[in-house]
Amino acid sequence: MAHTERQNAGPDPRPATRVRPMFHRVLHADPQEVRRALTDLRARFAPAITADTLGRLELVLAEVMNNVAEHSATQGVGSGAMHLCIVMQDGGLSCAITDDGGKLPADCLKPRNLPAIDPLDLPEGGFGWFLIQGLTQSLCYYREDHRNCLAFTVPYQQLS
């Protein structure tokens, strides 16, 4: 295909040379490897997005991957590995996390409130999915045979 044809290939032609950071990792579902992946991911995206966006991205991915490490990968099924992929697109940072552990309970995806805050008996957990739902857009889940597939978008502010 000639260069001019590619340029005119759609209603919104874009230069074919645009480079944006992506991140892909296959990791063992344990907290140390999650920490390592997040540290590397931070270095990858730091030049492209604001510190605020980076903090939100890192928090939501930590919550999702720690859930996989804590619940899905500990049920004695699957390889104990998970796949992480992040792509920076015009509409946001598109993230996908898949693993072959136990099925995600349907409850996790239902709209969440904060756990009841009783000052005399504060909740020590139950914040994870609330944070995930609050920090993401287009959160969706698909169970493909023996795999959990979770995808969502994190809106971003680009560094100028």
């Binding site: 604001t50 510190a51 903090g55 890192e58 904060l114 504060l122 944070l131 609050g134």
Partner: peptide, 25 residues
């Protein structure tokens, strides 16, 4: 800011006595 965000989003900023660093983003 990253730590303050977690307290704020979970409303735990009302439970704890927190003092964020001066330069907020």
């Amino acid at each position: 800011p990253n730590v303050e965000r977690v307290f704020r989003l979970t409303r735990m900023d009302g439970v704890f006595d927190i003092r964020p660093v001066a330069t907020q983003q």
